[in-house]
């Protein structure tokens, strides 16, 4: 029992050993001015202290909450648009053939390059930020959904059809469940993208948000605060990815081979 616990915690330490090592090196490098001056690279411990105070004062939450709100709205709108569209494009071949050249063109436009265009169209307020996230999250989900529908095993469609299944039922009971893992993978990719895009979008014409705070502190040479926000963003991305991965594993158990023990 104790042995097992020790083994497990040992494994956990091993998993994050590289991170810990990196942080230790950071601390040492900063304290002994090994790489750059202390102004540009404050010690990790200092960054954490600053971050702690920003969290206590409520400032961190003020910026984080608006950022989360923007990405959530943009993300949700993107999903609501991309999933049905992807299902339709994947299912109706003619529609797919018609739209795919256009989609290829759009997809290959770098989202951030479109930011000025969005600002022109939707102003510098909330709408342009939500729209740019919407645009950014669209593609991964759309393309994965299309791929998912087109990847459905024709044998399964045949099996269902042989029982006289209606097209609607076929779609609901075969095409949709078969594409769900693809859709979910698209969502996971998009979720991380949405944070990256958001940060960049908030550096332009925003007065709140994680990206704004980062930009603000950098401009005012408050370097520890700046690093604090970088760390927050990294943690946000990691946590988001971890949660979505866990959800994926849970919901698509039928995908991985074997796994009777994983009940």
């Amino acid at each position: 029992m104790f042995k097992k616990l020790a083994l497990r915690s040992g494994r956990a330490v091993y998993k994050i050993a590289a991170i810990i090592l990196f942080l230790v090196l950071w601390e040492i490098a900063a304290r002994f001015h090994l790489l750059v001056s202390a102004t540009f690279l404050p010690p990790f411990s200092k960054v954490i202290t600053v971050l702690y105070h920003m969290a206590l004062s409520g400032e961190l939450w003020r910026h984080a909450s608006i950022s989360l709100q923007r990405s959530l709205i943009g993300f949700t709108c993107g999903m609501l648009f991309a999933v049905p569209l992807g299902l339709a494009i994947g299912w109706f071949q003619k529609l797919g053939n018609f739209l795919s050249p256009l989609l290829q063109v759009f997809r290959n436009m770098p989202t951030l390059a479109l930011l000025p265009v969005f600002v022109m169209f939707f102003g510098i307020g909330e709408l342009s930020k939500v729209m740019v996230i919407f645009w950014g999250v669209l593609w991964a989900v759309l393309l994965n959904t299309i791929a998912g529908v087109q990847d459905v095993d024709p044998q399964l469609i045949k099996a269902a059809r042989s029982m006289g299944t209606s097209s609607l039922r076929l779609f609901a009971t075969v095409v949709l469940p078969a594409s769900l893992p693809f859709i979910f993978t698209g969502m996971r990719i998009s979720a991380t993208t949405s944070i990256l895009i958001l940060i960049a979008a908030e550096m332009v014409g925003a007065s709140r948000g994680l990206g704004y705070a980062l930009y603000f502190y950098q401009g005012n040479m408050k370097i520890p605060e700046m690093y604090g926000y970088i760390i927050v963003m990294a943690i946000l991305g990691v946590v988001l990815n971890y949660v979505l991965e866990a959800l994926e594993r849970r919901n698509f158990r039928w995908r991985d081979a074997g796994g009777i023990a994983s009940e």
């Binding site: 045949k158 099996a159 042989s162 029982m163 009971t173 039928w254």
Partner: peptide, 15 residues
């Protein structure tokens, strides 16, 4: 449904 088709390959719904 008057005919049941068992195909080459099992074609079970994996989900």
């Amino acid at each position: 449904l008057d005919r049941g088709f068992i195909m080459q390959g099992y074609a079970l719904f994996p989900w």
